[in-house]
C-alpha cells in the first residue's frame, strides 16, 4: 500500500487520543489500557493491533470514531491468535533394498517407502468476530493463560460519501480502538 506520507502524518496528529472521546457504558472496575490505539485509519483498510492479554484479567475491546459518526456501529473487528498446529505430510521415497536371489547372489533394488513428516505451522485462529454477533462494537473477554492476540479492525467505506468532518486528508477517519482491563475472577492458579 502506498500512502501519501505527509498527509498520513498530519492525519495521525489530528487523530491523537481519539480513544479518550469514545463513550463507553461505564462498567465498574474497568481501567484504560495503554495498549489502546488511536490513529488515522484509511477507509476500507484493515489495521492490526498486537496486544498481550494476561491470564486472570478481564478485557473490554471497543471501537469508535467520534469524528465520523456515519461509521459508528459499522466497524468490523476480529480477535485472532497465531496457533501452532501440526499435520502429517506423507511422501513416498525410494530406498535401496538388498536381497539374495535363488542363486544366493546379492541383489539391490529400489523399493518404495512411505515417509511421514510432522509439519508444524503457525496458523491464524479467529477467536472472535463481531460479524457473528450483530456487529457489536464492544466485546468483553478473559483468557485462561497469557496470550498474544491480534485485534484486526476493518474501517468501512462510507458508501462513497465525503467524510463528515475532521481530517485534512479526507480518505482517513480518526478511529479509536479502546482496550480496558480489570482483574477477573480468580478461580485458582491451575495451569
Amino acid at each position: 500500500m502506498v500512502m501519501p506520507l505527509i498527509d498520513f502524518a498530519q492525519s495521525q496528529k489530528e487523530c491523537y487520543n481519539t480513544v479518550s472521546f469514545c463513550s463507553t457504558e461505564r462498567k465498574e472496575g474497568f481501567t484504560k489500557n495503554m495498549q489502546s490505539l488511536s490513529g488515522a485509519f484509511e477507509q476500507g483498510d484493515t489495521s492490526i493491533v498486537q496486544i498481550i492479554v494476561y491470564k486472570n484479567m478481564e478485557y473490554r475491546v471497543s471501537v469508535c470514531s467520534p469524528s465520523n459518526p456515519e461509521l459508528e456501529g459499522k466497524f468490523q473487528f476480529k480477535i485472532a491468535e497465531d496457533v501452532k498446529k501440526g499435520v502429517w505430510e506423507e511422501n513416498t521415497i525410494y530406498v535401496d533394498s538388498t536381497y539374495e536371489d535363488e542363486n544366493f547372489d546379492e541383489k539391490t533394488v529400489k523399493v518404495p517407502k512411505l515417509q511421514r513428516k510432522r509439519v508444524y505451522q503457525t496458523l491464524e485462529e479467529i477467536r472472535y468476530d463481531n460479524a457473528d454477533y450483530e456487529m457489536s462494537q464492544e466485546f468483553v473477554f478473559t483468557s485462561n493463560k497469557t496470550r498474544k492476540l491480534k485485534v484486526k479492525v476493518y474501517v468501512p467505506n462510507s458508501d462513497g460519501e465525503e467524510m463528515s468532518s475532521g481530517l485534512s486528508g479526507s480518505s482517513y477517519a480518526c478511529v479509536g480502538l479502546l482496550i480496558e482491563h480489570q482483574p477477573g475472577i480468580v478461580t485458582g492458579f491451575n495451569r
Binding site: I48, K84, I93, L114, R116, V119, Q121
Partner: peptide
C-alpha cells in the same frame, strides 16, 4: 511402509504495514 518420521516447524511471519505492537503497563 513407514521408514522415517520427521518433525518440522514452519514459522512464517507475514509482512503487513498496518501492524501496531503494544506493550502492557506495569500496572497491568
Amino acid at each position: 511402509e513407514t521408514v522415517q518420521e520427521l518433525t518440522e516447524e514452519l514459522v512464517e511471519e507475514k509482512s503487513n504495514d498496518n501492524i501496531f505492537y503494544q506493550v502492557p503497563t506495569p500496572n497491568e
